[in-house]
Design a binder for these strands. Structure first.
Lengths: 252, 252
DNA sequence: GACGCCTGAATTGCATGCAATTTGACGGCC
DNA sequence: GGCCGTCAAATTGCATGCAATTCAGGCGTC
């Protein structure tokens, strides 16, 4: 397989690209949880570059929605709201339907082998950490997108898939990505068979079920967004005295 | 209406955002044609900032696909291939179907008024320059996207719409955006009526016809990408002698 | 006359430095 | 004991400087 020459859009300058890829991976594997701080010079030091480069990388990731950039404040890993997560999945469904529509019946033998190999790898990773499973599942979809040979589609699918991955780590209960592997196999089979409508339906229900398994409750379970979670309790009383929020706000 | 606080994803640092917006607008109004050079310090000087900022802005625009960034070379306005243009439209169709699906029957009075006012402005701009007409037509779609209140959708629709706009300037013959105004009115009407299927169909055929009016021939008519255009002729002979391409390459 | 090389000017790649802002912690006050 | 103002440390915002690369034009050669 060709060493997929630096995804072209940006991050071409390599140094920036390396940092972007590393951070993306760290984020989707949850080594960096949503809300984690990303100071420019720590990053620069870690990767052996100056702040200028680290800053540029953060800019790119912010454009992708993985990182939140606040003026004069330390950048943090993004914490998408539940609604944003839902929106991301809606978009993802449409984009990936487009992918499989373009791919149905048009896969080469090599591509089929590559996809199968990937799903096999997913299978083998079942026993490993959840983080790796989730990353592999995401990469399956990105691999599909690559096969369309449409750089734009690749970029959007990748972005939105990463975003979804990030939200999964926020809102889903553990082990929610288990049974996805069979669905991946079914999609490959339908692609090979060339049944456009069928494979679009499969992809739709696959993503829909991933989303539904994950986004059951509108209220986050492991919330970092304390302020938002506690908003309804702001006026709550604690033994007759109004509880001040300042302490909680500090804790943020 | 709230002054829609700086599109949030990036370009928040204002200075970068200002340059991005200015360049985007210049590009879609064709003040900057595809292939136009964008040297960092000229930009910086023009906007009264240092190269650092100009560079950052170029990075953002590159991520959006409006600018091409080649290592150690002057950045240029992107010149999407015909295939990329087609892909962009395909994606755009799906995204905008999603927009109107979410919006059907849910518009407030204010929003309806805003949309109507915008189309009226498009009407008034008919006599003006083509560039302005095209920009307004594009902004109609972005305005719709904003009304979904989904930042992700806004970002993707904006991006892909700008990209399409850029390709229109490359491949379309003049005056191809004329009759779109009535289609915009029809879409508003269907949105108000709340007929989801109808409005999705309308949006689909609207964009499809824009694309088809523009992207009729796979071969660009006003090509800037000389190298690509001339590739088939590379071995062509000119009166018995092989024509060297170096001169043409220089002209790029 | 056209091609190719070679050199100065232009331009980018990146690091660093300084000013401005935020952070968070300490001490005083109610 | 908890709240608020003040101040040093940490951090970002941005400009500038230097090295490396590319670009453009002139010269010599075929």
């Amino acid at each position: 397989m060709a060493p997929r020459a630096a995804s072209k859009t940006a991050e071409s300058s390599d140094k920036v690209g390396v940092i972007c890829r590393a951070l993306r991976r760290a984020i989707i594997e949850q080594a960096l949880e949503p809300g984690a701080k990303l100071p420019e010079d720590s990053l620069g030091e870690r990767f052996g570059v100056s702040r200028t480069i680290a800053r540029h990388a953060l800019g790119q990731l912010a454009a992708e929605g993985l990182v939140e950039l606040r003026r004069n404040r330390i950048a943090v890993v993004a914490t998408p709201s539940w609604q944003e997560a839902r929106d991301a999945f809606d978009i993802r469904i449409e984009l990936e339907r487009l992918v499989v529509r373009q791919l149905a019946g048009k896969l080469t033998k090599n591509q089929i082998a590559e996809l199968t190999a990937h799903v096999d790898a997913e299978d083998r990773a079942r026993d490993g950490s959840d983080a790796v499973s989730i990353r592999l599942a995401t990469e399956f979809h990105i691999l599909l997108a690559h096969m369309t040979n449409s750089p734009i589609l690749v970029r959007y699918v990748s972005e939105v898939a990463y975003r979804c991955c990030l939200t999964l780590s926020l809102y889903s209960r553990p082990h929610s990505s288990e049974c996805a592997i069979n669905e991946h196999r079914a999609i490959i089979a339908a692609l090979v068979k060339g049944d456009e409508a069928k494979v679009m339906g499969l992809m739709h229900s696959h993503l829909d079920s991933v989303a539904n398994r994950a986004l059951v409750a509108p209220a986050p379970q492991r919330g970092r967004d304390l302020l938002e979670i506690l908003a309804p309790y702001a006026e709550e009383r604690d033994g007759g005295r109004v509880v001040k929020l300042s302490k909680v706000v500090r804790a943020r």
